[in-house]
Simulated assay, not measured.
Amino acid sequence: MKPARLAAETFRSLHGRAPQGVWSAPGRVNLIGEHTDYNDGYVLPFALPHRIAAAAAPRTDQLLTIATLGSDGRVQRAAPVEIAALRPGSPGGWAAYPSGVAWVLREEGIGGGGADLVLAGDVPTGAGLSSSAALECAVALALLGLAGHSDTTDDPPGGTSGDARRAEIARWAQRAENEFVGVPTGALDQAASMRCTAGHVLFLDVRSGATEQVPFDTARTGLWVLVIDTRAKHSHSESGYGDRRRGTERAAELLGVRALRDVAPPGLGAALDRLPGELRPLVRHVVSENARVVEVAEHLRAGRVAEIGPLLDASHTSLRDDYRVSAPELDLAVDLARTAGALGARMTGGGFGGSAIALVHEADRPAVEAAVIAGFERERLARPRLFTAVPSAGAGRDRW
């Protein structure tokens, strides 16, 4: 059953009435461009068909109630909270993400009249596929919809009229994660969830906010992006993500630039000579990764999808050796996929666990999948979850 229907039916069973509406947002795969977003760089994500839905109805008592339907079919309910009493860090746990969105909208002077929310979805959690951003964006659209901002929740992404508003909503959702939850993520995840379109990757210049929808019809080319969820749980808050971010900010400060985006590839060697040894690998990754994003986008515009494979490989090597955010399970998945015939493979997401992706010919996909599963079994690791990722639509209102 689709997340929107699940959310609506669970809402009815919990509250004895139908929701006023259901809104949903997708997880994402980042084709390339890792740890470049908080360095004002370039990213190239696309939306997954997997979504998180928020069924919602207004309340008149200023309370926010939140329930979520787990993958095991059980409903978990958070304690009701007064929207006026929301403060960063309270509530904590899983309820912090939707509560943070309500807090941001209150700070922006929007809504605040109370709401019942019921969440359901199929974005894998802990897989580095932005389940938290999908949740935040779905809740943002739901609360905006309840507040009467249907014009911002119904416009599809990619259109000129609605895209600026979608960019603003993405920033609000990011602020909820950064300031309320306390996780220092960049702009990639929420922007992808709000602004991606079906059949395209989103070329995003994080500094300017400019976007381009680059065609990426994998079925037409006979190529697939295979997602390998290693089941090694990924968490920004419990990893070295913040350390890496602070390191790149320190490097930019020492180099006298606004962000590492301002270090051009021809000047990389001279820049590295000015930095202490521990910062050089971080800078080398960010500068080279930005260049790889630009090159991949050029290949896709020209329809040369198969030629991006070596760039995916180079990205993983850089993330593993320079940025040091890979994990043994990710390296194993990448190596197994390449050996079995993938054109290129890399970890995707912030790292320290989560998922890898592999670009494979349709005819080679069964062999690659079998090799990955067998390799994990030999290492006595949990069986990975594998699926093909089709570039899908961004966030919006659902019919159920």
Rank of each mutant, 00 (worst) to 15 (best):
H234D: 07
G186V: 04
R195L: 10
C196T: 05
T221L: 13
H200E: 07
K233V: 15
D205Q: 11
L223W: 12
P215Q: 05
V201H: 04
H236V: 13
G222Q: 11
T230V: 02
A210G: 08
V225Y: 08
L223T: 12
E212I: 11
T211V: 15
A210D: 10
T218L: 15
A192I: 00
L204I: 04
R231S: 13
Q213N: 12
C196A: 06
D217N: 11
T230K: 01
R195G: 01
V206F: 03
S193Y: 01
L204C: 04
S235G: 07
K233T: 14
I228V: 15
H200V: 06
R231A: 15
L223E: 11
A198L: 07
V214S: 03
H200R: 09
G222S: 11
Q190M: 01
A191Y: 14
H234M: 10
T197D: 02
G186R: 01
R195S: 00
G222H: 12
L204F: 06
F216Q: 06
S208T: 14
T230C: 04
W224T: 15
T230N: 02
R195Y: 03
T218Q: 11
F203Y: 13
A232Y: 05
S208P: 04
I228S: 03
A187V: 09
V214C: 05
S235P: 03
L226M: 14
F216D: 01
P215M: 06
R195Q: 11
V206D: 04
L223F: 15
I228K: 03
H236R: 14
Q213I: 06
S208M: 08
Q213D: 13
R220N: 11
S193D: 02
A232S: 13
L223P: 09
A210H: 09
R207Q: 08
H234T: 07
H234F: 07
I228D: 01
S193K: 03
D205V: 07
A219W: 05
Q213F: 09
D217P: 02
S237W: 11
R207W: 05
D189A: 03
A232I: 05
L188Y: 00
A198T: 14
D217V: 10
G222C: 13
H234K: 10
R220H: 12
T197L: 06
E212S: 12
I228Q: 01
A198P: 03
T221W: 12
W224M: 14
A198F: 05
D217Y: 02
A192L: 00
L223H: 14
